[in-house]
Amino acid sequence: MTTNTLVAQQRSKRPLSARLASTSKIVFLAIAALFTLGPVVWTILTSLQPPTESLGATPSLIPKDLSFESYKAVFQQVDMVLLIVNSALVTLLCAVGQMITAAMAGYVFAKIEFRGRGLLFGLVLATMMVPMQVTIVPVFMLIRGMGLSDTLLALILPAIPTAFGTFLMRQYFLGLPDELGEAAAIDGAGPWRTFFSVYAPLATPGLAIVGILAFNYHWNEFFRPLIMLISEKNYTLPLGLVTLQGNKGTGSVATILAGVVISMIPALFVFIFGQRTLREGLTAGSHR
């Protein structure tokens, strides 16, 4: 064997093992991805079967004939329109309310000095330490006392003041230079003008984070609706679907899964159009 071929052999050996390593890495990641997406794909495929077939004894991966009958069925079995409207109302009002109040409070904590500011902000942050499940009993009493039990307001009002959103918005406003406000003051703008026409418009990316987080959380939430809502006409989508699943006699698997798929659609939109913002917001809490 000449030295030349030996060198050539050695040279080709490394890339091969490296290629093998990276291929096995990708294969492993692909399998993990299959486990992650598989259940969702199965849900979508099953929801596209007619209501009777999905009760069959042999589970099938690919539906024999695609149909939207299960979607029609779920709208007949529960008042899906009402569930969607209720969920949308709660979600949108919580999100908008949180964006407005968090922007206002975050701005004050970042840009306006007053005595006791640090202490007050510390107290606001401290409320994040106590889990919502612990305060739910007194909150329920409070809501009852206000005459709001079994209304959508029972979900919306307590969710609007947000410590985490305030924290995020304060961070955001701290990142905007003080000189902007000083320049506005020299031009004769008062504190209100300075906020509304200088700082607030610049804070839209921060607001988007607060809004998307709130949207995702409240669209999906289950615990508070379960406690606060009694009559079915006030149910939100997750609560309605769990109730429908509970009365198993009434619905076939495909029908209920059609409802589940519908409940995923808004989250999917957020995922496609606001994924970056959502990721930023979700990890923001860890940099405290």
Binding site: V242, Q245, I256, L278, L282
Partner: peptide
């Protein structure tokens, strides 16, 4: 999966 509702995921 993080963006889905725990209730929906559990049903499915």
């Amino acid at each position: 999966p993080l963006i889905l509702s725990a209730a929906s995921v559990s049903i499915m």
